Amino acid sequence: MVSRKHKRAAMYKKLQLLRSITNSHAQSKTSIVLDASKYIEDLKRKIDEMNRDIVVETVQASLPLQLKVEAQEKGFVIEVFTERSCCGLLVFILEAFEELGLDVRQARVSCSDRFHLEAIGARDNQGGHEDQIDAQVVKEAVLQAIQCWSETSEQK
Results as ranks from 00 to 15, higher is better:
Met1Glu: 09
Lys7Cys: 05
Arg8Tyr: 07
Ala9Val: 01
Ala10Gly: 06
Ala10Ser: 13
Met11Asn: 08
Tyr12Gly: 00
Leu15Lys: 00
Leu15Asn: 08
Gln16Lys: 12
Leu18Met: 10
Thr22Asp: 04
Asn23Met: 08
Asn23Pro: 01
Ser24Gly: 09
Ser24Trp: 08
Ser28Val: 02
Thr30Tyr: 14
Val33Ile: 15
Ser37Phe: 13
Lys38Gln: 12
Tyr39Glu: 03
Ile40Pro: 00
Asp48Ser: 09
Glu49Ala: 06
Met50Phe: 08
Met50Gly: 03
Asn51Val: 08
Asp53Ala: 02
Asp53Pro: 00
Asp53Trp: 04
Val55Pro: 01
Val55Asn: 02
Val56Glu: 03
Val59Ser: 03
Ala61Tyr: 09
Ala61Pro: 00
Ala61Ser: 12
Ala61Gly: 00
Ser62Ala: 11
Gln66Ala: 09
Leu67Arg: 10
Leu67Asp: 06
Lys68Ile: 08
Lys68Trp: 07
Val69Ile: 04
Ala71Tyr: 02
Gly75Asp: 05
Phe76Arg: 00
Phe76Val: 07
Phe76Gln: 03
Ile78Met: 04
Ile78Lys: 02
Glu79Thr: 14
Arg84Thr: 13
Arg84Lys: 15
Ser85Met: 11
Cys86His: 04
Gly88Glu: 05
Leu90Gly: 09
Leu90Tyr: 14
Leu90Asn: 12
Leu90Asp: 10
Val91Ala: 15
Ile93Thr: 09
Ile93Val: 14
Ile93His: 09
Leu94Ala: 14
Glu95Val: 09
Ala96Met: 13
Ala96His: 08
Phe97Asn: 10
Glu98Tyr: 07
Leu100Phe: 09
Leu100Gln: 05
Leu102Gln: 06
Leu102Ser: 05
Leu102Trp: 05
Asp103Lys: 07
Val104Tyr: 02
Val104Phe: 08
Arg105Tyr: 01
Gln106Tyr: 01
Gln106Glu: 02
Ala107Asn: 05
Arg108Asn: 10
Ser110Trp: 01
Phe115Ala: 00
Phe115Thr: 07
Phe115Lys: 10
His116Met: 04
His116Gln: 06
Leu117Pro: 02
Leu117Val: 06
Glu118Ala: 03
Glu118Met: 07
Asp124Cys: 13
Gln126Ala: 08
Gln126Arg: 15
Gln126Trp: 11
Gly127Met: 05
Gly127Ala: 02
Gly128Val: 06
Glu130Tyr: 10
Glu130Pro: 01
Asp131Thr: 09
Asp134Ile: 05
Gln136Pro: 00
Glu140Ser: 10
Ala141Val: 06
Gln144His: 15
Gln144Asp: 14
Ala145Cys: 11
Ala145Gly: 09
Cys148Trp: 11
Glu151Phe: 07
Thr152Lys: 14
Thr152Gly: 02
Ser153Cys: 12
Glu154Ser: 14
Glu154His: 13
Gln155Gly: 04
Lys156Ser: 13
